[in-house]
Amino acid sequence: MTCIEIRDLHACIDGRPILKGVTLSLSVGEVHAIMGPNGAGKSTLSHLIAGRPGYEVTSGTIRYDGRDLLAMTPEERACTGIFLAFQYPVEIPGVSTATFLKTAVNAQRRFRGKTEIDAMQFSKLIKEKAEKLGMNNDMLRRSLNVGFSGGEKKRNEILQMAMLEPRFAMLDETDSGLDIDSLKIVASGVNALRSAERAFLVITHYQRLLEYIVPDYVHVLAEGRIVCSGNKELALELEAGGYAPFTTHACHAS
């Protein structure tokens, strides 16, 4: 079942075209990886899907479970199950991770017509999920992302994903700045969430992450377009040959 369908998407930032005709379709149960050189538009694509202001869509469409995604507010997108794990999660001083997540979970529940989660239940749930990511109580009590190491920030993003149980999750260069141990923890956190009800879009520069989160499909985004799509082997090919072949001439992979 198609979850996200992007058709011929063109978008600009400050009048400068970044996406120049992206077409991509993801079904639930699938993990897609997007790779590509710096400045190709990978992060733009994920932020645009999440609804970040400042992008102008000049043509094209995005359907999300049959709805017009571009007509939805950022919080509506989040409440209906679109999740973005940020490359650079922001700091919110004075708000603990636990408080932040409780507020988020309850906002989502209200949107879905459910009653708010009770404090005890929430506390049990978050501890359970945090433990799996090697996060202790102290981390849940600290101000959100304030003074967190790179690894802690990324784990925190995965924790949020686990709590919000999205339908469509995007990971924006979640592997950047991670040592191998953190990478493994983050990857196993993601793998634990793979399900027939959920689609993933994993954005990365490197093949390494994809050894741990094995994608069903790999796409190369270069110069604002998907220039090549294939299976997980494509990632290996990229690792060996770099992106140069894909930015200059057509793709030969299957």
């Binding site: 999440a50 609804g51 989040a78 922001v90 507020t103 979970v105 949020q160």
Partner: peptide, 27 residues
């Protein structure tokens, strides 16, 4: 704007986001 967008991406409305950030500021 980054803080607000981050909160919205986590399901909060603009006003909920402001209230949360301000409460943190005053903690």
């Amino acid at each position: 704007d980054e803080q607000i967008f981050y909160c919205k991406q986590r399901c909060l409305s603009h006003e909920e986001a402001v209230a949360l950030i301000v409460n943190g500021f005053c903690r």
